[in-house]
Simulated assay, not measured.
Amino acid sequence: MRHSKYICAMLLTALSAITSSNAVSQSTPPVKLIVGFPPGGSVDTIARAFAEQARAQLGLSMIVENRPGASGKIAFDALQNAPADGMTVLIAPTSVIELGPMVLPAMKFDAIRDFVPVGSLAEYGFAVATGPASEAKDIDSYKAWAKANPSASSFATPGLGTPQHFLGTQLQKELQIELIHVPYKGGANSITDVLGGQIPLLITTEQVVVAYEGQGRLNTLFITSKNRNPLMPGVPTAKEVGLDQLESVDWFGAFVKPGTPTGKVNAWKAQVRQIVASSSYIDAMKKLGYEVPERQPADFGALMTAERDVWTERVKLSRFKLTQ
């Protein structure tokens, strides 16, 4: 009898411990990764891949919370309204962070003042490609064609105020040719019209042109990344074709709210470094068409300041005006 009572007591103690452990686990909320775009897009996909690796490698519980709308402003507001406890993290491309306040009146924030970057999750470059309208196979032949056909020389982008828009105006300056901007509402229609011969030049992301590599439908003149894309080893970089000013990448950053304790900020930086350096994460990004930075920037503030200066000059060059 005493033995039975002892066993029951032990079971009750164990059950109590398990219940207590579960209560602690359930009472600790997961980290929220805020994404300002719908599910399935590039930012959402990267955030989910990062969350998956965080769970697998570090046992961290994370959920992706999509807050689409207002070109990312709703997500930015969500971070600014959250507690500064490191439990809410914004995942956003720097082109939106840097360009937003320059091209959208509602984006009244300062990226360096209002966000604390803790890591770079992935990056990609842009691509300049031609379709059948010009049949140019390299940048020199397109330049010659554009000089001979100034009224027909135009470039398609996903829209006004996008990085592609401003890269196009800079390309015009560097080549000293006429380039008429034809903005679309998204990238799909722009690609269709370039393939159909209505528009001679396309400025898009590297991921888009990779899908057409080797088909003979698009001719990628160059990419803006620092290094050649291993999926398109024959395509030169901007620097290799003498267009150093066009070298540019967009990187997806993780940001916390200002005021977050230094210890938590440093912990986040260490966690990001560990996750993005893993082979499983790098492989996941490559399958999605993205590169992982070889090393995290030592001074994110300096990096963001430098990039903002570059984009500011590109916006000025385009004579873009904010619309109220």
Rank of each mutant, 00 (worst) to 15 (best):
G168I: 11
L231A: 10
T204C: 06
R217G: 02
D299P: 07
E213T: 03
A298G: 07
V265W: 14
G259L: 13
K173C: 04
S278K: 03
V241I: 07
A270R: 07
V249C: 01
S279E: 14
K257V: 13
I177F: 10
Q215Y: 14
T205W: 02
G197F: 00
W251C: 08
T192M: 11
P230L: 11
K226L: 09
T260N: 02
S280I: 10
K264F: 04
K239H: 14
Q296L: 06
T169M: 15
S279W: 01
K286I: 02
E206W: 01
A267P: 01
Q296R: 09
K287A: 11
I177H: 09
S248Q: 07
I203Q: 10
G253S: 07
F300I: 05
Q164F: 08
I180N: 01
E294W: 09
K239V: 14
V209Q: 06
P200I: 00
N227W: 09
K185I: 07
K173N: 10
I177R: 08
H181T: 04
T237Y: 12
S278W: 03
S190F: 09
Q274G: 03
L288I: 12
H165K: 03
G187F: 10
A284H: 09
Y212G: 07
V256I: 12
M285S: 08
I223E: 07
F255M: 11
V256T: 04
V292G: 06
G161P: 06
L243K: 04
K226Y: 04
A238P: 08
R273A: 13
G259P: 14
T237R: 11
A211F: 08
S248T: 01
Q172T: 05
P200S: 01
L243R: 03
L175C: 13
L231C: 00
G186Y: 12
A267G: 10
N229E: 12
F252I: 10
Q198T: 06
R295N: 09
G289T: 00
T169S: 15
G196L: 06
V292H: 09
P258R: 14
L231T: 06
T162G: 12
A284F: 14
S279K: 13
Q271R: 06
P236F: 05
L243W: 04
D283F: 13
Q198H: 08
I203A: 09
K287L: 12
Q176E: 14
Q170T: 11
V208D: 11
A188D: 04
L218D: 00
A302C: 02
I282H: 00
A270Q: 13
I223S: 02
L246R: 11
R273N: 12
P293M: 12
T162F: 15
P158T: 06
D283L: 13
E291D: 13
Y281V: 01
G216W: 00
K257G: 14
M285W: 06
E213M: 02
